[in-house]
Nucleic acid binder design. Structure first.
Lengths: 200, 200
DNA sequence: GTCTATAGCCGGATAGAC
DNA sequence: GTCTATCCGGCTATAGAC
């Protein structure tokens, strides 16, 4: 039944996250899911295919989370970004799967296109959010929305990385919202002072 | 001889980077290094110990690169940061080993302390650089140097991640220096406008 | 210290009963 | 479709000659 598929993908998420792709064993995934190895192979055909299925699922969910987070940021202001970072960093499996998706994309040509496309979708969503903010506030940042989006995303992932590795309290959770705010301010000021390549 | 050790660590860097810890085989490392598996075990005792030796080596080198990059930034200004990012992102093995070090630290308790300590050292170097810039320019950013440092590091790693995964040209190499500049400007402006929690 | 050869194990995948 | 039992290849690690 479809129930098995869900349980299997859940178990796969936990085990692949905790052990990494190569470190994970099909046996353990089956055990955690409460089914037998045979079921995995009847449904997914191979360990790689199971991983691929998990990745597409995970990336879809991730895009949804990004959308929700960005909406919160637009509607409730920068302060809301603190909870977005806390939520993302709070889920250890998600954090590890995210890293795993990047590593797999870097190492497996077949996965690279999928993951890279996901990154472009996320970037595009973030850029749209920047555009909405820009239109609402009427402040021009002087650089393409896409570039602001890339910077925001990079800062986000980099902070989650530090946040998770460090001891509790080592990285302040509201650092993200404060730095995004400062970034926006800085870009706005620079744009107002001098439109980049024009005056002598 | 010590020659073997160097060759082995070089081969280990390449293979662990390309395959990941679990995906790498001792056999392949030996083959790439041009020695036999026996030599590895006589020198390092186990695959894990070889990996640990590689990590400490890699983290030391990384700290050196950070120092060099920060010095360039301080002396030649923000524009130099473009080449720093290009250099870091230009080395595929380094990028992958960096990700591997984070993942290993997250998953292996024995490695966590080592890698976390490295991150603190990097952070502290960056904070010292921020302090030097602050003293030189006389501009106060209104937040602790450490926090600016964390943000700069996070932005850096996040951008390298996007830069490497995306197609060539998808992420502009000078985005880092521009965004760090904007961040500094934004912080300075906010600090000048209103010292955070003081006025009514 | 470095090699070759091999032990011993573990994990991915399949066969075949139900 | 799900189970159990099994195959088989590859891996880490060691033994022993040089």
């Amino acid at each position: 039944m479809a129930r098995t598929r869900t349980a299997l993908l859940g178990a796969a998420a936990d085990v692949f996250a905790e052990r990494g792709y190569d470190g994970a064993s099909v046996d353990e995934i089956a055990r955690v899911a409460g089914v037998s190895v045979g079921s995995i192979y009847s449904r997914f055909g191979s360990k790689q295919d199971l991983f691929r299925a998990l990745m597409t699922d995970y990336l879809d969910d991730d895009l949804e989370r990004v959308r929700a987070g960005l909406d919160a940021g637009v509607e409730q202001g920068l302060a809301a970004l603190e909870s977005v970072l806390l939520q993302a960093a709070g889920s250890r499996p998600s954090t590890l799967l995210d890293a795993e998706s990047w590593a797999a994309a870097m190492r497996t040509p077949a996965l690279r296109a999928t993951v890279a496309a996901h990154h472009r979708r996320v970037r595009s969503e973030a850029a749209a959010m920047v555009a909405r903010s820009r239109e609402r506030t009427g402040v021009d940042l002087g650089v393409p929305d896409e570039e602001v989006a890339v910077a925001m995303i990079a800062l986000f992932h980099g902070l989650v990385r530090e946040y998770r590795l460090g001891a509790p309290g080592e990285v302040a959770p509201d650092l993200y919202s404060r730095m995004v705010g400062a970034l926006a301010t800085g870009l706005a000021v620079s744009a107002a002072d001098g439109p980049p390549p024009s005056g002598p």
